[in-house]
Simulated assay, not measured.
Amino acid sequence: MSEAAAHAGSVTVEVFNATQQQQVIDTILYVQNVEFNVGISLEDQPDLLDIETHYVAPGGQFWVALAQDGRVVGTIGLQAKPNGIGILKKLFVLADYRGKQTQCAAKLFSALIAFARASGMVTIVLDTPSLATRSHAFYKANGFREIPQSEVPVKYDYPDRNSLFFRLDLS
């Protein structure tokens, strides 16, 4: 049993604070580039350098999942756009904390959905690299449906890695 599985109940989710910024960057870049070899640099993701401006100030939020020792082991962000649209960004969980044992991704996703509903959002969209098949399965299991890029209801920046698009209508 991995350390994560042994401490499954101890993964907690909280709203990001600036003291966690470097851990957030390190976690995301590690998952993207070491675990999945996607090849996305920090320069391709300027939102990570100023989470307050890119997520919180416009009406969204950013959360971290913390291991029992306080380390950031997962992230998720929600950008608020006009007309009740939210963009799910930066759902990343370190390998030892993925899966049903820890429920890390599920806890992060639950925080995002609760916030989106409380904020009056009606639709959540996201982009994800086509090779991230495990992510696709998670999104579909949580009610998202894949859509063509032409049906994304809002324009936004993302590092295109042969991306797929998903949509969830909150009702």
Rank of each mutant, 00 (worst) to 15 (best):
A5C: 14
H7E: 13
G9Q: 12
S10T: 13
V13N: 01
N17S: 14
A18S: 14
T19E: 15
Q22F: 05
Q23I: 01
I25F: 09
I25P: 01
I25N: 09
D26V: 11
L29H: 06
L29V: 13
Y30Q: 09
V34M: 07
G39P: 04
I40P: 02
L42N: 05
E52V: 07
V56H: 07
V64W: 02
A65M: 05
L66C: 08
A67L: 02
D69P: 04
G70L: 06
V72F: 08
G74K: 04
I76P: 02
L78I: 10
K81M: 13
K81D: 06
P82C: 09
N83C: 11
I85C: 04
I85E: 01
G86S: 12
I87H: 00
K89H: 09
V93D: 06
D96P: 09
Y97S: 02
K107P: 02
F109D: 01
A111C: 12
M121K: 12
T123D: 11
I124T: 06
D127C: 08
T128I: 07
P129Y: 14
S130F: 10
S130T: 14
L131R: 14
L131Y: 12
R134H: 11
F138S: 05
Y139Q: 06
Y139V: 05
A141I: 06
A141C: 10
N142M: 03
R145L: 14
R145N: 13
P148V: 13
E151H: 14
Y156R: 12
Y156F: 15
D157F: 15
P159L: 14
S163K: 10
F165G: 00
R167C: 14
L168H: 09
